[in-house]
Simulated assay, not measured.
Amino acid sequence: MTEARHRRIAGDLRRRIDAGEWLPGDALPSRAELAAELGVHPQTVRLAYVLLRRAGVLEGQERKAVYVAHPPAVRTLTDADAPWPFACEATDSRSCAASEELAARLGVAAGVVLRHETVECLDPGGRSAMLVSSWWRGRRGPHASFAAELGCVELTEEQAHALGLLVDAPAFRVVRTRFDHDGRPLETADLLLPMDRWLVRLAS
């Protein structure tokens, strides 16, 4: 019940911020003040503030004032194969069995064991900008070309948590597959880009 309530409060606060009740840089009420206004325990407000800090809506440290964050920089994706120019953190490197979809993308049999890595790409301010999950078989080597397909998805709970967003937030999904000189797939990846932080510009 507490979890559902703090998520509901976080959603209400986000709507109030979007409506202009508080502007970037404005301090929000203290936990005690907002708890009294809403008729809830201060701990519930604290959890809502934590959720909004993770989502980049609020800034501020634990037990101190929290402020409306300035919007994150919006980046433009023009090359789905370009190296990320800032810091990255690997968050998962467990091997996995190829699903039907991954098998088709890599031209292998379903169930074949694939190498896997998920990397969180950070912007210069240290905020998560993109998640890249890659799968390949054997050794990871250089590629000669790539293809990319653009779609949209709703983030899972794990993905949303990593990106600091609410569950079911929309994101661009770029499916990138790399090929060798003979056109054989070497590696495939899902690039997840939050829609509030990215524009996608197709090359002419």
Rank of each mutant, 00 (worst) to 15 (best):
E3D: 07
A4Y: 08
R7V: 07
R7F: 12
R7T: 07
R8C: 00
A10D: 00
A10K: 01
L13C: 04
R15L: 14
R15D: 09
R15P: 07
R16S: 08
I17W: 03
I17Y: 07
W22E: 03
G25E: 00
A27T: 12
A27G: 01
A27F: 03
A32R: 15
A32Y: 11
L34Y: 11
A36W: 06
E37G: 02
L38H: 04
V40C: 00
H41C: 02
L47P: 01
L51R: 09
G60P: 04
Q61W: 09
K64T: 13
A69Y: 08
H70F: 11
P71R: 08
R75A: 04
L77E: 04
L77K: 08
T78I: 12
W84K: 03
A87E: 13
A87T: 15
E89G: 01
T91F: 01
T91A: 00
S93W: 09
A103Y: 06
A103L: 08
A103R: 05
A103C: 06
A104S: 12
A104D: 09
R105H: 06
L106Q: 02
G107H: 10
V108S: 00
A109E: 14
A110S: 10
A110R: 14
H116G: 01
H116D: 00
E117M: 11
E117A: 03
T118P: 10
G125V: 11
G126Q: 12
L131Q: 02
S133M: 10
W136I: 12
R137H: 14
G138R: 11
R139E: 13
R139A: 10
G141M: 13
G141I: 15
P142T: 11
P142E: 01
A147G: 11
L150F: 12
G151M: 04
C152G: 00
E154L: 14
L155D: 00
T156A: 03
T156E: 01
A162G: 00
L166T: 11
V167A: 13
D168Y: 15
P170S: 10
A171C: 11
F172G: 03
R173D: 02
R176S: 05
D180R: 14
G183F: 13
G183I: 14
R184I: 13
L186F: 11
E187A: 09
T188V: 12
D190V: 07
D190S: 12
L193K: 07
D196A: 06
L199Y: 13
R201C: 10
A203I: 14
S204V: 14
